[in-house]
Design a protein around this nucleic acid. Structure first.
Lengths: 194, 194
DNA sequence: TTGATTACGTGATGTAGATCACATTCGTTA
DNA sequence: TAACGAATGTGATCTACATCACGTAATCAA
């Protein structure tokens, strides 16, 4: 499906826009394509856009002083990604977003989002809904972190992102789970049939 | 400050409502008071309200099968609390909310929130803003969990909730940090002047 | 084809924090 | 004021995971 119809279907699951409204909404997005490995947002930069993934897979991640990476989110088709703390507060990026595969995305600037939210009440409703979902998912993951061991979280991850299983390197899975790649490897091979 | 003005001041930091609009908005809230120790939401229940704290302190928490408790949030004056997963998805509560002290709260039903969001665009904008903030805070806490040791997280907590320091029992602090009360006790006393 | 880089597996050892056990202090209520 | 339960401190032990070290397999670019 093309980018426009993908977005249209995505939005219309939540709100009803007239064709004219959707055209107007869509006119604020810009198609961008990136190759595997390219960086979209990097730490320290100004952030002024968020991204709707059409195809491919992004990751958003934090890198600490000891150069350890922690993945906040894998973003596949119809998921949104950005450094939202930086975007909303107009501060410098503290997290990075880059491409795990070749990707096609639709970008929307912070200003344009606020503008169309103001102009079209339904659009504001859509974005409220979207953040609600993100908030609930984030809280759920936090709880899982506190409550579950690594193996359980690994199994949850495979349910949440079944497509990742054979497409992304294991050290990225480990960085999402917050464990070392060695630990994940042992876990993974311990439960493997001989 | 009384409940009405507290809410008014809170909301008007983000959006501008006419007096008439605010009166209408406020008319959907109901004042409720609880004693220390009383439960507001408990696991398994239907959830149909969220709560704005006027005075006192709530905690929202999850209890696992081994009866270990994990605190998602302490909610003090002007904070909001509920089981948002249950509220938004109309599922049974998986988390609990109860009172750490005597509290006064304003309750708002899910239906009324959706109704006034639809009726008053500014109100929808306010709630979008509020959830954005919650989402960013939740992601930040998740990162801190992955990246920082217990001592660092303990210090962050004291910055985020300075009022908690001497008002809530230490085992609740431990339940927020996701460590055992024994570990927190040792940590706490190791850095204490002799 | 080859050399280099990246991904992955696995042993040895160190460590933060969990768990268990028990003592002490504090607060609440009878 | 006594007494009971809740909150806290602290030692001993256990364990999941990190870290370091090294080897092999897969991928990719020239």
């Amino acid at each position: 499906m093309d980018a426009k119809n993908l977005l249209k279907e995505h939005v219309s699951k939540i709100v009803t826009l007239t064709d004219e409204q959707f055209e107007y909404f869509f006119s604020h997005f810009k198609t961008e394509t990136y190759k595997k490995g390219q960086t979209i947002i990097s730490e320290g930069q100004q952030v002024d856009k968020e991204y709707f993934v059409v195809s491919g897979c992004l990751k958003s991640f934090y890198v600490n002083d000891e150069v350890k990476m922690y993945i906040l989110q894998f973003a596949m088709s119809t998921w949104w990604a950005s450094d939202y703390a930086a975007l909303y507060n107009k501060t410098k990026a503290t997290i990075n977003v880059d491409c795990i595969s070749d990707v096609e995305i639709l970008s929307l600037s912070n200003n344009d989002r606020e503008k169309i939210c103001k102009e079209i009440h339904e659009v504001e409703h859509f974005f409220r809904w979207r953040t609600n979902r993100g908030f609930v998912a984030s809280q759920k993951r936090l709880l899982s972190f506190m409550n579950n061991d690594t193996k359980t979280r690994y199994e949850e991850l495979l349910v949440l992102y079944p497509a990742l299983y054979n497409t992304v390197p294991k050290h990225l899975i480990a960085a999402y789970l917050g464990v070392s790649r060695e630990t994940l490897s042992r876990l993974y091979n311990a439960s493997k049939p001989h």
